[in-house]
Write a protein that binds this DNA or RNA. Structure first.
Length: 447
RNA sequence: UCCUGGCUAGCUCAAUCGGCAGAGCGGGCGGCUGUUAACCGCUAGGUUCGAGGUUCGAGUCCUCGGCCAGGAGCCA
């Protein structure tokens, strides 16, 4: 029995007899010569057979194998620049072939681009195609790299509940569900408040899980269910927060560049700008950003675009503003000190400037927008209570959260990183829905 | 909720001014010893999103409705 190998490690087996188990992604037959492009989950490899290499009956079956048939291939690994695949450059000369399952002939995914609706209706099959496979492998690497960095830097994983009794920020629309006799429960939109409890037990923590927004956002940057990584740190201010963010993001980007080359190459991702993602990232204040946007607005001649870019101090950024701002920087850019009025109730006011708070967003280049949002949190009991009242939040529901300001309260800070947005940015894809295996959008809960 | 665009073969699309509904891929049959979404020949495959209207004649024009997209708003 030849050694069972993974296609991503094929280069190590040049000249050896190996076994690959997988599925037929494409087949080309040229009379007495037949190519199977087989994917095994780790990569895509070309398997070649000449008519004389196999028993006639088996060769005839190989030539007629439908796309997606399951096979076990034995043969010799040969280096050949002509061989397509991921990583490519190696092929297997087939000596024997077992057909585990002959797929039905009506496989709906053609080897070409599909319309969005059709592709998403067949997401369960679409993920087999190289583009989707590559993106989802990068997503997994993003998560792995993030955990690596956090674990190596003193953070402990402390997951937070998905079913929650109330709105975290009181602003956004939540998915509501009946919770036995306890009334309504809501799907979480952030683990942050619980993380703030966790830091007083563990110092530095992070949670990682799905978050839910019932908003009717219909854009390339929104999902109703998305995954967020949320670190939270005791004894940390805004500057300390930005240092952690830029180190974490840089580690993720450099890890993906180092370990996902075949995936990025198959996505035709130009990585020159990603290679520059190293600390420190530029930091500009909201005031400076507002001034830049004012100049951009004045210089814009197209009336339609000018209207989209209209901006006044006090507004939150729209996506046209984010794109214009980030186009002026090579790396992700921090924008800090947003107006208190447009941010959540728990953010620490700027000393001497209560109209501004110690919040920071990290905006990715190339129009990918906000990938992280965070802040220093209010740690004074009376101020937090005042904010809860100002925002008309149910004080009783926040009793535990207020308790945290009574027993050893310290300056602390944290942020959330959107995994799909980071993945979409690194892969250079248009829409975050391809950066999660089974996307949930306002118009889609199937499959 | 608003704005804009789209809906034609299983898929991706074409159809000029309102005048015979087409191609490529995928499927079937045949050919080919280096294909890269192979190529060549043959073949099957249609309620043109739905309803109504204008017209000798509607995929095309008009009205209403449906579905989808991505932008605004909202948000990560």
């Amino acid at each position: 029995m030849a050694t069972l190998i993974r296609v991503d490690q094929i280069a190590a087996y040049e000249g050896q007899e190996v076994t690959v188990r997988g599925w037929v992604y494409n087949r080309t037959d040229k009379g007495k010569l037949c190519f199977l492009l087989v994917r095994d989950g780790y990569g895509y490899v070309q398997c070649v057979a000449f008519k004389g290499d196999l028993p006639e009956e088996l060769f005839d079956r190989m030539v007629r194998l439908p796309q997606e048939s399951a096979v076990i291939v034995q043969g010799t690994v040969r280096k050949d620049g002509r061989a397509p695949g991921i990583p490519g450059g190696y092929e297997i000369s087939v000596r024997d072939l077992q057909i585990v399952h002959e797929a039905a002939l009506d496989y709906p995914m053609a080897l070409k681009e599909h319309g969005v609706d059709f592709a998403l209706d067949h997401r369960h099959l679409w993920i087999r195609m190289p583009s989707q496979w590559a993106v989802l492998r990068v997503r997994a690497k993003v998560i792995q790299a993030a955990r690596e960095w956090l674990n190596a830097n003193g953070f402990i994983n402390m997951d937070t509940p998905i079913l929650t009794p109330n709105a975290v920020e009181g602003t956004t629309t939540l998915f509501e569900t009946q919770y036995f006799d306890e009334g309504s429960a809501y799907l979480t939109q952030s683990g942050q408040l619980y993380n703030e409890a966790n830091i007083y037990a563990f110092g530095k923590v992070y949670c990682f899980g799905p978050t839910f927004r019932a908003e009717k956002s219909k854009t390339r940057r929104h999902l109703t269910e998305f995954w967020m990584l949320e670190p939270e740190m005791a004894f940390t201010d805004l500057d300390g927060l930005m240092e952690v963010e830029e180190q974490l993001i840089s580690h993720i980007v450099q890890t993906v560049l180092r370990e996902c080359q075949p995936e990025l190459k198959s996505l035709k991702r130009d990585t020159t700008r990603l290679e520059k993602v190293q600390p420190p990232f530029p930091r500009i204040s909201y005031d400076e950003a507002a001034e830049i946007l004012r100049q951009i607005y004045e210089q814009e001649s197209d009336p339609e675009r000018k209207e989209l870019l209209r901006f006044e101090w006090g507004m939150d950024f729209g996506s046209p503003h984010e794109t214009e701002l980030t186009n002026r920087f090579e790396k992700p850019v921090f924008v800090y000190g947003y107006p208190t009025a447009v941010k959540a109730f728990y953010m620490q006011p700027w000393p001497g400037r209560p109209e501004v708070c110690k919040s920071v967003d990290l905006l990715a280049p190339e129009g990918y927008g906000e990938i992280c949002g965070g802040s220093e949190r209010i740690y004074d009991y009376d101020l937090l209570l005042e904010r809860i009242r100002q925002h008309n939040l149910p004080q009783e529901a926040f009793k535990w959260y207020l308790d945290l300001r009574k027993y050893g309260s310290v300056p602390h800070a944290g942020f959330g990183m959107g995994v799909e947005r980071v993945t979409a940015w690194l892969c250079g894809i248009e829409h975050v829905r391809e950066a999660i295996p089974f996307p949930r959008t306002i118009k889609r809960v199937y499959p």
